[in-house]
Design a protein around this nucleic acid. Sequence first.
RNA 1: GGGUCGUUAGCUCAGCUGGUCAGAGCGUCUGGUUUACACCCAGAAGGUCGGGGGUUCGAGCCCCUCACGACCCACCA
Length: 888
Amino acid sequence: MTDTAPRPDRTIPDRPSLEGLEAAWDGVWSEQKLYAFDRETTRAQVFSIDTPPPTASGSLHVGHVFGYSQADMIARYQRMRGKNVFYPLGWDDNGLPTERRVQNYYGVRCDPSLPYEPDFTPPQEGGDNKSAKAANQQPISRRNFIELCLELTRIDEAAFEEVFRTVGLSVDWAYGYQTIDDRSRATSQRAFLENLAAGQAYQSEAPTMWDVTYRTAVAQAEQEDRDREGAYHRIGFTRTDGSGEQVYIETTRPELLAACVSLVAHPDDERYQHLFGTTVTSPLFGVEVPVNPHPLAQAYKGAGIAMICTFGDSTDVIWWRELDLPTRSVIGRDGRFLPEAPWIATAGGQERYAELAGLTVFSAQKRVVEMLRESGDLVGEPSKISHPVKFYENGDKPLEYVTSRQWYLTNGGRDQSEDGLRAELIARGRELTWHPAHMESRYRNWVEGLSGDWLISRQRFFGVPFPVWYGVDEHGETDYAQVLTPPVEALPIDPTIDVPEGFTEAQRGEPGGFVADPDILDTWATSSLTPQLAGGWNGDEDLFGKVFPMDLRPQGHDIIRTWLFSTIVRSHLQQDALPWHHASINGWILDPDRKKMSKSKGNVVTPIGLLQQHGSDGVRYWAGRARQGVDTAFDEGQMKIGRRLAIKVLNASKFALGFGEAPADPAGRLAADPALVTDPLDRALLARLADVVDQATAAFEDMDYARALEVVEPFFWAFCDDYIELVKERAHGNSASGEAGAASARAALAIALEVQLRLFAPVIVFATEEVWSWWREGSVHTQPWPTAEGLREASAGQDAALLDAVAQAAIAVRRIKSDAKVSQKTPVLAVQVLAPQAAVAHLEAAAADLTALGRIEALTLTADEGEGIRTADVELGEPPVKQPRNQG
RNA sequence: GGGUCGUUAGCUCAGCUGGUCAGAGCGUCUGGUUUACACCCAGAAGGUCGGGGGUUCGAGCCCCUCACGACCCACCA
């Protein structure tokens, strides 16, 4: 982007161009604080938008530009409607993506046991995402690590803001926030403490899904299935009744054999009736386990009888809980086998387990299979299958179950009652107005499918710490039941640095003292509070009262289950209200081959490159043509069309204004005096434009920017290609109607142009502003949205169909010359135009303009019953002599 | 397995409560330097609206069904 200064002289350039408009107008807008929210306001005057805070780790994706542009169109429309638009934009920078980027960028990793180094210099800068070899990363203290996180997010966020400014987002940057800044941390911690006091947040020691790479628990919303190769291993257990009977199970997780706590089959399964209530002994490890019936066991899956391990999958957890089975964990938090398995009673079993201790899951599986082969307990060869396995969405290794103490927030996931929290949250979804409406079903689907409360603690470093300590008893044991909390005024706090009231730092970790909760909150636990963060819930009650609940949440459909849902949960718990009235869901960007555009590809096609090549208006046009919720092809062709439209706006405006400025409307409602518009054609134009205004307004009221654009754009092209061409000669004064006819055309041109600039302004933001500056005061973006009323009055009841009749006649005449393959400048010595009676009347009223356009010397209009408007009895003149252009 | 959306010209898509709804742009083809615009202009060709049933005087539009595509959820022995 060049740093072109805004054109100060407000004159029409000889050759209007889009180049440099972005930088010029962004400069003017930010200098004038054009999009600033006015604090002196009432809630009724406000239109507030809860904008997605982008994750500022890495580069912006084309999809960002797409979705944010669409929201901006709605914001701009509302502003022109006279709303005081509250349109902040924050950054979501407190999570794992930032940690990972910092690790790769600086070549470091966090080791909380290390001391802080004040003058630390990272080993590298600007590493990419591929160089992530943990072994090569320098361990640094948590504080050093967080400092690097803050530094890098500052750099990334500045770059993002530059892109968003170039795109022309009418964001009020003064209300920005970072989800890691002091205010956000305080807000997030306060909300948590209130949830705690209300019994909505609680801790529980339970098996949870665990990512062994990041060494943290992950929530249901962050998990995804991936197809992985696996194999069924058929393994025999021996009955302990001395019969020697073998019971065969099939498992894809043979390495968990040592963690087996029971076998299970369906209670009605005839094959296993005799086993229920008896015990069997596991191969290799010789552990005696019961055989239990449970309805979740499926008779036709695998062998019909399964081994329950602690823990292989979610069903294991259910069985373990409902059958009250012991816990025999073998996998540690690092994903490696634990050193001890004290429940293994046999010497051989212990010997074998010792071989597994310390191995990764992958290696342990190989070793166990070898052992089973050697012992003869593996029946046949493992049969390969492909099956879905749960992964953390940012992880590379399958999730494992690890038992740990975690914090949870109620979200209806454990509530099956008819009128409980889950039902309330589903009702909230119904209460919300969705654009498009069918997106509500995704939300309902997700809420209905929740299987547990929201796990909000993460064993990570860069995030909002849990603002709690725990008491330490006289034996030095942590008493998790004794939760110590800070007062709200003290927030934000870091319990690993700050000390609870009534204690001293010396008592940290000491008997009778306290310890900090070492965890941080799930990033969604903070970003679910964006309405509260942006709206000033914690500390700016006045603002909060004016913007909450917000009017609009724009976002992608991929994060309905995370961001949208969690935001509703928080507002429901905190404010007992919906966080917003409307949710506008944008689609995804698809590759031309209809696949979701991949990260890599999206980064190859950088937003900045597209903005430079097609102009921000061109890119915004592409976004504006896409309807809400509809996945959209990445189509540079559409951007080219948008660019052409923006250029056309400049050129057509230049031309329409070149006839001379028309006298102003004394009433001040229109760009020119409507009393001057006397010609039927001019009046028909304004009548048609009034209809367009009505349709565009109705569409925007429904937040359907795409439909509005779809109505305005064709009108504009017809305005250029037909109307302007028709009135050219008359506007120059070269018509029998003389000065009155010319004045009528000029006034109509000025009025129509000005109204169209305002209609286009939400989408084509730069070209419209540029043209506006040539001849009007202020910014087009703070003008009132046009209304049809004045246009209808100016049209004085003229039937808009006149415009269609003349346009069709013009096409018929042009076709004569196209078919004859001669220049449109070729005179028509004589022509008869045949049309229905009503059209003939219209054509008579505009005959002078029509003959001027077609260079017709003798026009005859004839009414007949034929189809449409046609020509007959044509007599063409000599084509003009070709003359070289631009000579002299 | 449950759910949602989609299938309209070569491409990208409109078509709102069933009655000029068979459309637009791009692309293609044929022409034109028409002094606002070659970052242009004019004109033309192109589709039995995924298949099959049904309702109706009348159906891209409503109902049923099948096929294909996409996504969400569930399944993970």
